[in-house]
Design a protein around this nucleic acid. Structure first.
Lengths: 147, 147
DNA sequence: TTTTAAAGTGTCACAAAGTGTCGAAAAGTG
DNA sequence: CACTTTTCGACACTTTGTGACACTTTAAAA
């Protein structure tokens, strides 16, 4: 009801749109709105509701642009962002460059993860799970050490 | 809606004009106006909406001109500026000297980065990404320490 | 000054990208 | 099994991006 969860197997249409599952729509209606931000990372696309995105971006905005390092970081950061993707009729358009990045053609996996949703190409997702699923316990320990 | 983001792949016409993507135009209409400032830096051209330019220039103006270093910096700074580039019919003309500086011929990448837009030649951008994209996480940590 | 070339501008038409809507199929529910 | 909800593709429509081309302005040369 108030946070994203579960994996869904959906199809992307010929114009590059994805129908979000009704469970996700419900969360957006309850807690957020129709304005979403897309972010490319780890070979998938992360969907942030606008409100969640702002928390993330805030930190980057504060850095001084007089430094080359900062400018370069900002370039990479913003090159991965697509703001103002509006959810219309339950569908969201994934711009072409993002589709290419995440290798989205027809079959897509959506992963709800609390405050965000991730979009994976089915092939890459299956591969990821095949390679990493059994690392779960191992990673869990590492996480415990971090904090 | 209110800030620039994302990368766009566009073409420069034979007269040296670029069609800004409608998402960028929308931001200009909402928050700014048609008067832009172009600035040469890091092998690309940065487009500042007039209002944002003033913020940047303000910082430079505040530096004490008693120091030779500052005076030199200011000289170079101003030599890189092209003011009063007007957006007309959604197009912006990039003067020849700037096109040469940034090596813009046909294929161009536009990068929206919050308050500014950067114009890159496709070749130079691709090279930049090839060299820096995988440093993203690394840079992210560095930035986290800064702020 | 007049002529000529170069730089810059306005407009249009076609192609490509994005949007709205609907009905059929599939999935979920009591 | 009926009924509701959700998902999905189809298709028409709108908006946006691009190249072409004629026109205007500016600058330089005769």
């Amino acid at each position: 009801m108030f946070s994203f969860s579960g994996t869904y197997h959906v199809f992307i249409d010929t114009k590059g749109r994805i129908n979000l599952p009704s469970k996700f729509i419900e969360v957006l209606n309850n807690r957020y709105n129709n304005t979403l931000v897309l972010f490319k990372i780890d070979d998938c696309i992360v969907i942030y509701p606008e409100k969640e995105w702002e928390v993330y971006e805030e930190k980057v905005l504060r850095l001084s642009s007089m430094k080359k390092n900062v400018r370069d970081y900002r370039r990479i950061f913003y090159s991965r962002v697509q703001k103002d993707c509006i959810l219309k009729h339950g569908k969201i358009l994934i711009p072409q460059s993002l589709r290419e990045y995440a290798n989205l053609n027809r079959e897509v996996v959506l992963l709800g993860a609390s405050t965000i949703i991730e979009i994976w190409s089915k092939e890459i997702w299956d591969e990821f799970i095949a390679n990493n699923d059994d690392k779960f316990e191992e990673l869990a320990e590492e996480m415990a050490n971090l904090g």
